[in-house]
Design a protein around this nucleic acid. Structure first.
Lengths: 203, 203, 203, 203
DNA sequence: CTATAATCGAGACGGTACGTCATGTCTTACT
DNA sequence: AGTAAGACATGACGTACCGTCTCGATTATAG
């Protein structure tokens, strides 16, 4: 057989880390999370399903919440809301992405994870910096484009509006399970378009 | 008139459960919950502090989540929003009660509790019927009084408005920690007063 | 005038104890003992099977070992070895009664009960006074009749012989389960008849 | 010659059990057993004293009786009765070792242990195979040496004699507490030496 | 005929041990 | 060096039995 590997310079010693492990652990954790819920995810079970030892899991993450946190970080695709020139359409897109994220996507675990991590500021901070903040920036951009186009008042309290939207969706998922009808979503977008939303205080 | 008196109630036998124990357990659990958080509440510790055996705890509740559930049920005082004739003031009162409930009150444990109960539909149902629903009814009344007075449009989608408000507060507490400034609250009340909120679809 | 009934014996007031309870409890305990063994006998279960409350059980006996003790006491029929004039036949009868008692009768629990009661001198004493001692007296009589008839040496160490016999049977039941063949029993009786057994030391 | 070497033994993986733990647990259990008796031995306490977690205890043994069983197995030193050429002296030594074993040694727990294991045939079998049987073999050898030397009849029913001896001692310890005087022991040895003991049936 | 007093069945109670399980760390042997 | 297997300390879980203690019903004597 032909000796492949053309003398890779600066040979590292020892067995190289398995690049697949990390993602296999994340996949296993995700499956379990969906099936059993956060509190029933077991590191033992994750390791078994990933065909990996617990040691390896703990090499990548210091503890369970950190693992779940990363799971959410990596699975939280950035909000794809292209600049189409149509402010109303962009807001509608944004809203439906929020719904999808919090309903079926990784965001549905967020609330719970945050609750379970309430005594672990580090993981909590990471979650906010790497998941919440980037998404919020994108969402904010959508509003700012609308303001720039003159479609939205300049003093719209963007964060308040986004928190209202996120909050509504999240609450209908966990707190008081109920559907979110199409027309309610459209009304909320219309209210934003017409400026009937919280405004920033005059500086 | 037919006296709809219920059946003779099938005489119970044996020593009745000590209602004293029950409330002492709940009190101990509440203290622990406030001090250490849901995940650190221990049945052993609750029993010890209540001066009660573990067996007695498990006689009243089948497992930890059920205990905490009852704790929240009993401690979730009904929303006291008296009919003052002033719709705007009543809405403001309602909003601040929501804030208080979700920030410092029993509502702050709800998320984790709901998660821990995910495989116990009974407890979950109880939580919703005895805590969420009654509070929602009271809140709805405040809006209906406003409608009756002509201060609010008849087709306000009350549940949507309340979910928006609850959601915003909950999200600012857990998901994206941020203060909820006074003026934002007032703007939200004003928007409701002016009817710039979701409406029910025409039937 | 009728003399007011000489000494009405201080008539007790209140509901009289149910005379059946005691024996029904003993019967239930006996059944359970046979089925599940001493360590698996539960007062709860005994009470349930006897159709009686635990309170009633504890009215008759202070604790579990005492109940089992009484069970053995009452079920240990006195050794019926009639004086037939035939010493050898009487010894054989005695031996087979010992075998029956320790193998299938109440005696089979004795060893265990004694072990379990090792820290309860009171119950232990009762057991010895009311069960072991009376049986021993009868057994001793059989030997003394043999001595009186001149069939046995006067200095036979009766207690040693009886302890040898009891010990052998008990050991074959619990310590080293094995059958006790007929011919072994006969040999032991023969050895006693021929005086080849421990003797009392010369006083 | 065929090398009867066993299979390559299917290489075990993972961290091997710490043999240190095992013996420390046994030591702790032994201390507790001596101090408090079988029924008062607590796995929690054993684990604490051994500086070991309960889990570790349950890794080695499935339940308490199994632990105590192993304790007795390991602490039951084989009967040291050297071949001195003097049959009578050897029998006396054997008898006194039996007394010591059943009086102060591990044998005194046997009864309760056997009872506690009544629904676990495996543990029971182990107890008999590894404790009772080896001791019996040694004891039997002493008699067989005596037979070979011509000091004892060839058809002595060794097991019967040994069961008589064990039974007597055990009975005087538990069933009918009484001293076992020196002269009684000597008489029993003499009876064996003179062949006045049960014999095997002619085959 | 009512008051008093005891027993009864049912079962809650404090205590204590049980045996199981999850977390996060550490060890061994293999690659 | 990195890994899979898996033992380890810690500590909560929920269950079982013991012996005690109510509760309301029942059943007798006493007045």
């Amino acid at each position: 057989m032909i000796p492949t590997s053309a003398a890779p310079a600066a040979r590292r010693r020892g067995r190289p880390p398995d690049p697949h492990s990390r993602s296999r652990i994340l996949t296993a954790a995700e499956t379990l999370l969906d099936q059993a819920g956060y509190l029933n995810v077991t590191i033992d079970e994750v390791a078994t399903r990933a065909g990996v030892s617990k040691k390896t899991v703990y090499r990548f993450w210091p503890h369970k919440p950190a693992l779940i946190c990363d799971l959410i970080v990596e699975r939280s695709a950035v909000l794809p809301v292209p600049d189409t020139g149509d402010t109303r359409a962009e807001l509608a897109t944004l809203f439906s992405l929020i719904v999808e994220y919090l309903t079926a996507g990784p965001g549905s675990t967020m609330t719970l994870l945050v609750a379970a991590t309430s005594d672990d500021p580090g993981t909590l901070a990471k979650l906010r910096e790497q998941v919440v903040a980037p998404r919020r920036d994108i969402a904010r951009n959508v509003f700012q484009r609308g303001i720039a186009r003159g479609d939205l008042p300049a003093d719209v309290d963007i964060d308040a509006v986004l928190d209202l939207w996120h909050g509504l969706v999240a609450y209908r998922v966990t707190g008081r399970p109920a559907a979110l009808p199409r027309h309610t979503v459209e009304q909320l977008v219309d209210l934003a378009m017409s400026g009937h939303v919280p405004r920033l205080p005059p500086t």
